[in-house]
Every structure is written in structure tokens, then in C-alpha cells.
Design a binder for these strands. Structure first.
Lengths: 185, 185
DNA sequence: TACAATTTTCAGAAATTTCTGAAAATTAAG
DNA sequence: CTTAATTTTCAGAAATTTCTGAAAATTGTA
């Protein structure tokens, strides 16, 4: 497998950005490669193209599977496992988005919920709990919103994202229109 | 400065989560402490409360300033610098969101834009460019949407996030209502 | 200016994460 | 069952990130 210099640059960049997106350099590179390369690729090809060890590829694929970002394929007459990116670019983005929501929000929500169960023992703690409650409310709302977005049909999501400044105008309409959506909360 | 066990747990958790949110453990802890502690805190107090070195505190504060998450204060008759979290929880969340958009999206958009300037030299490259274009279009749209959300008034943002399943209903309305927002391209 | 208080810097130490490669485990075919 | 192909594991090595603490720089006061 040879990568064009375009592909090379794309892959290397996704490696660099990897850590910001929640995976390490080689996992980022593997993901990028599978994303620009439409044909299924096996582990040896990945190792060769990215110049990393076979063991590292195995671990990276395991992680990409945990993220549900890759699909396993088999080619007739070949015992090797072949991989492709799972679905369209939009599917991939949605999956990364959901997975990050889970990893970045859920553990914190769980902890804060526990903290809020305790009765504050003094004025100091009562004050701290107030702030914790504020953080909790906000993260909970964010979490629900992220969930709502994940569940939207692609065409609705596209419509929403393209609204731009039309979004606030649309929000003004809410509840003011006969037969429109009813007031939430 | 003594932290209640509540506060302690909160701070430690934000330390653990720190890396997922874009900063390291101690920066996460410092941010958490400033968030639950309403009164201004100086560097020595941070070092003492978090049991880290003075130098580390200095570096962490520099980073929090780069993120625009802290505000500097001075107490009369005290030469030390005092810090608080910058603004309300909502302000902080908005700042983190904006800052992450910049760090996670912008560099990639810049690179992809450059890659798309090159004329593809062969069929292989043309195909790769198609995929790069798809990724670019999606990230660009995401970037703009994130910008739109950042600029929304808090009350509109709240309204939007609380819509839940009402969101798709509201989207159906778009363009169908006399005097409603005009169709965005 | 001189001086003490305070903050910043940064070289090296410590901690953590990632990677390699050989050995172990698994899988499929005969 | 045996064998060969393939994948996984994981101990230690390498790379990277974070942290410390002493020295240098800066700041405010007199």
C-alpha cells in the first residue's frame, strides 16, 4: 500500500490532532488512513504504511473497535482480517461525537450526582454544593442536548447547522405559532 | 485554605477528567478549585491546597489565563496576585467550548483547505481528494454551527437545549411560517 | 537607588503514555 | 490432531508529558 503525498499529509495531521480528539497518535493515523482509503486494509498493510509495529496496530484496531469506528471484513481466500471505516463521514462524526459525550460528560455527571446526595454539614459545604449544583445542571442539560443532536436525522441536523443567524429568529417563533411545538419544561 | 471533603472530591475528579477536557491534571484541579471557591485565591494557597509546587502553580495559572478562564484580582494591602474563575458557570462553559473549537477544528480546517488547493495528479489522488472534501465540508459546517451556538444569548441557548424532541418539530416549521426566518442557503 | 516580596523560568527528575517485538494464544484448513 | 497462518498480549524500552525547586527576573515600596 502506497499513500499519495496528499493522503500522507492527511494521515500525519490526524495523528497530530489525535490526542485532542481522544486517541493517541497512531490510532489517529490508522483512523485517518481507513477514512481516506475506501478499500479494506489489513493489519500488515497498516503497519507497513504507517511504519509502526504489528503489535501496535493490533492494539490500535482494538481501540478503534471500542470506539465503533471500524468494520471487519473478510476477503474470499484470504485468512487475514480486513478493516474499513464504519460508514460515511457523517456516521463517523456522529460516532465520535457520541463516544466523546459518554467519556467526557457521563463520569462527571455520575460523580456530581453522588456529591449532591450528601447533606451539607456546614455553611461552607452548603455554598460549595450550590456551585456543584450549578455545574451539574449545566452539564446535564448539555448531555441531553448532545443526545438530542445525535438522534436527529441527518437532514434535520444539516438544516439546523445551516441556519446560522436564522437560529435565533427560529427560536423566537417557538410557541408563538398555531400548531407549533408545545412549550417544553 | 482547607477544602471540605465535597470540594476535595470535586477537585480530584476534575483533575482526572482534565486530560479529556484539554488540560493536564493539575490545571484541571486548579480550575475546579477556583470554580467551587468563590473567594479569590493566591498562588501559595493553590500550591498548599493541591499539594503541588509553586512553579507548577505558576505554569498552570499561565495556561488558565491562555484559556481565558481566570481573572486576576488584587486585595488592598497585599502584594500577591489573587485569582477567581472568570464569570459564571455558563461563561466558563462557553469559554471552554470556544477554546476547544479553536484548538480541535481550526488547525484541521486550515490543513484540509491547503490539501484541496492541489490539483490531483492521478485517479488515486482524485478519489482521496473527494473524501478530504467530504471531511472538510462536514468540519466546516460543524465549526460554523459551534460559532453560531457560542454567539447565542444565554436565554436562547437555554431554550434550544431544552427543546428536546421539540427540536425536529421546530425544524419542520422552518420556512413554512408567514413572517418566519427566511431560508438560509 | 536598594531591597524585599513575589512571580516566572527552565533544567533535570519523575511520572505517564506509547510502542516494540518476541512469545503465547487463537483460528482455520487438511 | 497437526500444522501453519494470523492475531493478541504484555514486559520492558522509548518517547512524551508533567512536575519540582532553585535561580533569575520582575514588581512595588520606600
Amino acid at each position: 500500500m502506497k499513500l499519495s503525498s496528499q493522503a500522507q499529509a492527511f494521515v500525519l495531521h490526524f495523528g497530530e490532532m489525535g490526542s485532542r480528539w481522544g486517541f493517541n497518535r497512531t490510532v489517529g493515523q490508522m483512523f485517518a488512513l481507513l477514512t481516506i482509503h475506501p478499500e479494506p486494509v489489513n493489519a500488515d498493510q497498516l503497519a507497513q504504511a504507517l511504519k509502526i509495529s504489528r503489535g501496535n496496530v493490533s492494539m490500535g484496531l482494538k481501540e478503534l473497535q471500542a470506539w465503533r469506528l471500524v468494520e471487519l471484513h473478510h476477503l474470499p481466500g484470504d485468512r487475514k482480517d480486513y478493516f474499513t471505516a464504519a460508514g460515511s463521514i457523517w456516521d463517523l462524526a456522529r460516532t465520535v461525537f457520541e463516544e466523546r459525550r459518554k467519556r467526557e460528560l457521563d463520569p462527571t455527571l455520575t460523580l456530581l450526582r453522588q456529591l449532591l446526595l450528601n447533606e451539607p454539614q456546614d455553611e461552607q459545604e452548603a455554598e460549595a454544593q450550590e456551585r456543584i449544583q450549578e455545574v451539574y445542571d449545566l452539564l446535564e442539560l448539555l448531555d441531553q442536548f448532545a443526545n438530542t443532536l445525535s438522534r436527529l436525522q441527518q437532514k434535520d441536523l444539516l438544516k439546523l447547522m445551516k441556519l446560522g443567524s436564522g437560529l435565533s429568529k427560529l427560536l423566537e417563533l417557538k410557541g408563538k405559532v398555531k400548531g407549533g411545538p408545545s412549550k417544553a419544561k
